[in-house]
């Protein structure tokens, strides 16, 4: 019983992080109908940059954020405006996957060349202890990850709902043509949407660096996990992805403590396949999904 509670608690904590990591993917899909396979590669690029800032300057990993967040925002705008916007619209879905796949390979190769293929990690003294409540051990690094993710997501939702930019972005997601008709510059908004998506990757990367060792090929595992989350949640739905993230985080946590790590990861794919068989448009939204 205690074991299950442990799994459940860990699952909720990692689920929160998954929600942050997947939110960018939902944004890209929403604004451009693009499945951005390179998102996890950018996550690990951010993790490596955090590592560099931490090891060379001796700073706390979170102090890398003022550097990486604006940098990644600019990169996101550049990727959308310079690369994705050039693709022919009739075969956008397939070609954008291949394009971003190429970007992912490019980043992985560069990381491997500059940082070598061995594991790196950022460990802070404060993150190694754990909190024990009623026999359940909660490592501080996971708690920190959860709260950083939760705060970032809250900021993201606030921006999406309250700000003018957020309204334009949601309008663009819901109906591009109509948004253009009411005077929204959808191209520019889509670019910023990508920027915001990659900015979440900057935050997510820093958190990942804190909680797990990483090497250049780490991003492959995450492609599968994050894709499963956004498909289960319903492609293009930020809220759906967040709910699915917590659900899958909990499932993973429970399987992790009762079976083993391999099966815990396989659960993501099981859910992915089951979703596609039962309800291809996802469980929490995504009326757009079945065509893409």
């Amino acid at each position: 019983m205690n074991l299950l509670l442990q799994g459940l608690a860990l699952g909720v904590l990692t689920g929160g992080l998954y929600a942050l990591l997947a939110s960018g993917l939902s944004l890209y899909f929403g604004v451009m109908r693009v499945v951005m396979v390179a998102h996890p590669a950018f996550l690990f690029l951010a993790a490596y940059l955090t590592y560099t800032v931490h090891t060379t300057l001796g700073l706390d990993p979170f102090l890398a954020l003022p550097l990486t967040v604006p940098l990644f925002f600019a990169l996101g705008v550049a990727v959308q405006r310079l690369l994705i916007a050039r693709l022919a619209p009739e075969n956008m879905a397939m070609m954008s996957v291949l394009l971003t796949f190429g970007i992912a390979l490019t980043i992985e190769g560069l990381l491997g060349t500059f940082y070598t293929g061995s594991y790196k990690s950022v460990s802070m003294e404060y993150a190694t202890r754990s909190l024990t409540i009623g026999g359940v051990h909660l490592p501080y690094d996971k708690i920190i990850a959860f709260w950083v993710a939760a705060i970032t997501l809250l900021v993201l939702f606030a921006v999406l709902i309250k700000s003018r930019f957020g309204q334009s972005l949601r309008a663009t997601i819901q109906h591009r043509e109509a948004a253009r008709l009411v005077g929204i510059q959808t191209e520019r908004v889509a670019g910023y949407g990508f920027g915001v998506g990659l900015a979440t990757a900057a935050v997510g990367g820093t958190v990942l660096a804190l909680i797990t060792p990483f090497f250049p090929a780490s991003h492959w595992v995450w492609i599968g996990k994050l894709m499963a989350i956004i498909v289960v949640g319903g492609l293009g739905s930020v809220v759906g992805a967040a709910l699915a993230a917590v659900l899958l985080g909990v499932v993973e946590g429970l399987v992790l403590v009762t079976v083993d790590a391999t099966w815990a990861t396989i659960m993501f794919y099981v859910f992915l396949f089951l979703t596609l068989l039962a309800r291809p448009q996802g469980f929490f939204g995504g009326r757009l999904a079945h065509r893409f």
Partner: peptide, 13 residues
């Protein structure tokens, strides 16, 4: 059963 980008995701998975 799924098209386009979803199919690519499934194949990666």
């Amino acid at each position: 059963r799924v098209r386009g980008a979803s199919f690519v995701i499934v194949s990666i998975a």
